[in-house]
Simulated assay, not measured.
Amino acid sequence: MRTTDIGHRTMAMPAHPAPLGRRAQVPTGGAPCPIVAMTTRHFRRDMQRIAVPHVEAQLVVRLGPTIPGGLDIHALGVRPKVQRKFIRGGQHAVLVRLQPGTYERALGVSAGELTGRMVPLEDLWSRTHAHALQEQLASAPDTEAACTLLKTAISAHAARTTSARAPSPLLQAALDLLQVASVTRTAQALDISERQLRRILHDAVGIGPKTVSRLVRFQQAVRAAQSARAINWSNIAVDAGYYDQAHLIAEFRAIADSTPRMLMTELRSA
């Protein structure tokens, strides 16, 4: 694939990035679109990549002379901790975040089976479909065309997978509520038990509601710090739903193996 040097660019499905827990565009037939957003990245030099965890699974395409065969495609399950990986310069990547509740349709594997794993696409799709997509991506003229190919292929696979279980109708409400409420209050608001809530989230995302809530708070804190001119961790802690700054620091150590200040330095360097 001939790539354009576009650095780091995010393309959402639809036109604007969908916040965590927001339903993506719904196509004909009532099933949610499998894709939340697509991000393209060009790693111009050798560097340490810092991946902040999301509650969405991802499909990742990597291209470049340091990749065996010049191209590979992997599915990444939800990872509850920050990931650090050394990347060789010259690589391009397209990252596709998938809508919770669509993993089985889009990838052919349940959310629970994918959690914490990186699996080659050819181990999930039929070898014929996986290799056809690889060939198309290898000959794509640029990253814009590659994104279009990925969207088409993922949507087509989701349409073919008619045996996948439909997500709970309470899934979206649960994801929305966990951004602002505790697990107990979320279950109460949905009029279900906490055990039912855990099953709904595990089936659709691969992790339980407590982990979802932790990752949501962490993401909100990181985004707030990245957008602030002067970082006030006490205010960020309150706004993100932590008890206090000490709680925020403890969660950063648990999720990122780092203090908040150190993590922000890493992210700026990356």
Rank of each mutant, 00 (worst) to 15 (best):
R23M: 10
Q25W: 10
V26M: 08
T28E: 10
G29Y: 03
P32F: 03
V36D: 07
V36E: 06
A37Q: 10
A37D: 13
A37T: 06
M38H: 00
M38E: 01
T39N: 07
R41V: 05
H42T: 11
R44F: 13
D46F: 15
M47A: 09
Q48M: 15
Q48A: 13
Q48T: 15
R49Y: 09
I50V: 15
P53G: 05
E56R: 11
A57H: 15
Q58T: 12
V60Q: 10
V61I: 11
V61M: 03
L63A: 11
P65K: 13
P65F: 07
T66M: 12
G69P: 13
G70R: 03
D72L: 04
A75F: 03
A75Q: 00
A75M: 03
G77H: 09
V78D: 01
V78I: 12
R79A: 09
R79K: 08
R79H: 07
P80C: 09
K81T: 05
V82M: 02
Q83D: 11
K85T: 11
F86P: 05
I87N: 00
I87C: 00
R88D: 14
G89K: 02
G89T: 03
A93T: 05
A93Y: 01
A93E: 10
A93L: 04
L95P: 06
V96Y: 01
L98R: 02
Q99Y: 05
P100D: 08
T102N: 01
A106P: 05
L107C: 07
G108F: 00
V109G: 04
S110H: 11
S110A: 15
S110V: 14
A111V: 10
A111T: 09
G112I: 07
E113N: 12
E113A: 15
T115A: 11
T115Y: 01
G116F: 07
G116Q: 08
R117T: 11
M118F: 07
M118K: 09
V119K: 00
P120E: 01
E122Q: 12
D123V: 09
D123I: 06
D123F: 12
D123G: 09
D123H: 14
S126E: 11
S126C: 14
S126V: 14
R127G: 08
H129R: 13
H129T: 08
H129P: 01
A130Y: 03
A130M: 07
A130G: 07
H131I: 06
H131K: 05
A132F: 05
L133K: 01
L133I: 09
Q134N: 04
Q134P: 01
Q134S: 13
E135K: 03
Q136D: 10
L137M: 10
A138L: 12
S139N: 12
S139K: 14
A140T: 08
A140N: 03
P141D: 15
D142L: 02
T143S: 12
T143D: 15
T143K: 13
E144Q: 08
E144P: 03
A145I: 08
A145G: 02
A145E: 13
A145R: 04
A146G: 07
A146S: 14
A146R: 02
C147F: 05
T148P: 02
L149R: 13
L149Q: 13
